[in-house]
Design a protein around this nucleic acid. Structure first.
Lengths: 355, 355
DNA sequence: CTGAAAGCGCTTACAG
DNA sequence: CTGAAAGCGCTTACAG
């Protein structure tokens, strides 16, 4: 049942084929430089022998690993999971392997991961967001390995970026709510830090409100963990703090799902009494009733473009300094005009029981 | 801005410290074998120099990579994503790096991934399920690298397993529905193949029904992709096929969420008119209204135990042939006694509109 | 087009 | 406890 205990080496193949190891190496890596006869002879042996090259040895000799490292906050978030799948698929087509690490929103762990992957030998890095420890950037630069940032459309560190303008998207979605007539807002934001994407979204909301001279009191802002139950609790808190709130912006769909479920539990009609928006466009956003108005992030596209970028950079070409992938506002059923043309504070929306 | 173009090597550190590279290597890997003075001198240089060892060189020389490969169907599934996080965390504590690959339920791709990781140099493998290409098992065995299977509690290939009995859990959940009084069942199953976990769950349902002499006609079984919308469509199809169905077993929570949403859209009361069960216990299962009765899978626990197993096997010790982690039946609001003590086919549940 | 050989940066008996 | 040196399995100028 146990097979050959020792892995086949280049020299084993070479001997069997009656050629030098250089030739075997060539048919493996640059077959076009080998004569057809030899190529075929070697290829046959290669196949029947089930030869698997020793990657570390190849990496040591060539100083290349054909490996890309992706360091994301968490693979538990569908947005990143999807992006990674696309990145991996695309990279695989270019002959690269993707190594994934996650740091759970901890920049120290991110730095440690970078170091671990650097050590392991990685030809390029894909990071998420532009908020990193200076040491991380320094380390990456000192090792002279290409890296890019994703899910943001620009970098203050001058790193090539593939993503979109979180601030603008949130601004536009808020503007849409304003145009519907909403004037009392709530904001449910993920508190994971560092998270420049969520921060940007929040800034977009605030800017839109500011431009209309609308205030967002602190009690109508909730910073909560990334979970459905947190979204529920946040909605409750905001509605308690101010029953007049008629629109709640959530920085992610997961929070919006919680907000909707809680609203229903409280007997608040969505969107009749309360409009709720999400961000990401997870599948559930389109399926839950009412379906959630949200921003669609082209995660696959980001992964695909990122793969192209990093491959180009590794090859020594340069990549555009930044690519903005298009996001899309998806209007669904969770948003509508406010029920009561707001007059003053008092009875409206938040009566929590409806006849 | 650009730092030293060439990575520091052991010899650079050795020269700076006035010792041999062997000594530097030792303080890095077996510090207890070095005298305190030298250790400290070298450690200082190591720190100020920011030395990062060349992993491939170390791997080539030592024939070890301190890397474990995990090959899962998809990281887009929260169950696997959570398990991986736990696996990674635990492995990290033992000094191992985890490399993740996903094969999208394609056994050929799985084989290819195994080969790629073998080539890259991996000390051990964690696979999902017991359904693999014979070539995959052969390859793994011939390379003499330890590997285990997870999310199943036993392996017909005699591979150490960490998981639980999918068949039994499904059997028990079905039994619970039977004890509530249900007699007309529907089954919504994920059609991803190969997927021995889902197949086992399905078998568990069928066995429970068989023992009570209850038939499950084909039209009451739906095999669908893994998505909420598929769950919705499946529920509709089953209810159309037989309005008397009073309990629907879903092989995963994601499908159950779809079923519940669709039931609500059809005006079917859950659990009043229809009981629905899930499997996995994703967060949404506990938050959606009605909350879903389901089987809780201890994903973290599986990851943790798997990490211990594989570390032990790599160290040359042996691991128990199989560990069964406990699953738990979580009774929530989506299940209840059937509304109408079933008489014959006819009007009941499926009237699709309610007063 | 092919091969002999140096070299990639470590680890690890072995000797002292 | 420490060092000199062989060797891990490849790649890649270089020469022919």
């Amino acid at each position: 049942m146990a097979g050959e205990k020792r892995a086949k080496r280049l020299i084993d193949v070479a001997e069997a084929a009656g050629v030098s190891i250089a030739t075997v190496s060539r048919v493996l890596n640059r077959p076009e430089t080998v004569s057809p006869e030899l190529k075929q002879r070697v290829t046959e042996i290669l196949n029947e022998t089930g030869f698997v090259p020793n990657g570390p040895a190849a990496a040591l000799a060539s100083r290349k690993t054909r490996t890309v490292g992706a360091i994301v906050p968490t693979i538990g978030n569908a947005v990143f999971a999807d992006g990674i799948v696309a990145l991996q698929t695309e990279l695989h087509n270019s002959g690269y392997t993707l190594i994934i690490a996650n740091h759970q929103y901890n920049r120290e762990i991110e730095l440690e991961s970078v170091r671990a992957l650097l050590r392991r030998g990685v030809d390029g890095f894909v990071l998420v967001g532009d908020d990193h420890l200076p040491e991380t950037i320094q380390l990456l630069r000192s090792f002279d390995v290409p890296f890019i940032v994703t899910y943001v459309h620009e970098s203050k560190n001058n790193i090539p970026a593939v993503g979109f303008d979180n601030e603008l998207a949130a601004f536009q979605l808020t503007d849409y709510l304003l145009n519907l007539g909403h004037r009392e807002f709530g904001l449910i934001a993920n508190l994971n830090e560092p998270n420049d994407r969520v921060r940007a979204r929040q800034n977009g909301v605030l800017r839109a409100l500011r431009e209309r001279k609308i205030k967002l009191p602190d009690r109508q802002i909730a910073h909560v963990p990334y979970s459905i139950s947190s979204g529920r609790a946040a909605l409750r808190a905001i509605k308690n703090a101010n029953p007049d709130v008629s629109a709640v912006f959530c920085t992610q769909d997961v929070l919006a799902v919680g907000a909707i479920i809680e609203a229903q539990a409280l007997g608040i009609d969505v969107p009749g009494d309360l409009s709720i928006t999400g961000f990401d466009d997870l599948e559930i956003a389109g399926e839950i009733e009412p379906a959630i108005t949200t921003i669609r992030i082209p995660t696959r596209e980001i992964g695909r473009v990122a793969a192209g970028y990093i491959a180009r950079l590794i090859a020594g070409h340069d990549a555009p300094q930044s690519t903005t992938v298009p996001v899309e506002m998806i209007i669904r059923e969770s948003t509508a005009r406010p029920a009561i043309p707001r007059r003053g504070p008092g009875r409206p929306a938040g009566t929590h029981k409806k006849g």
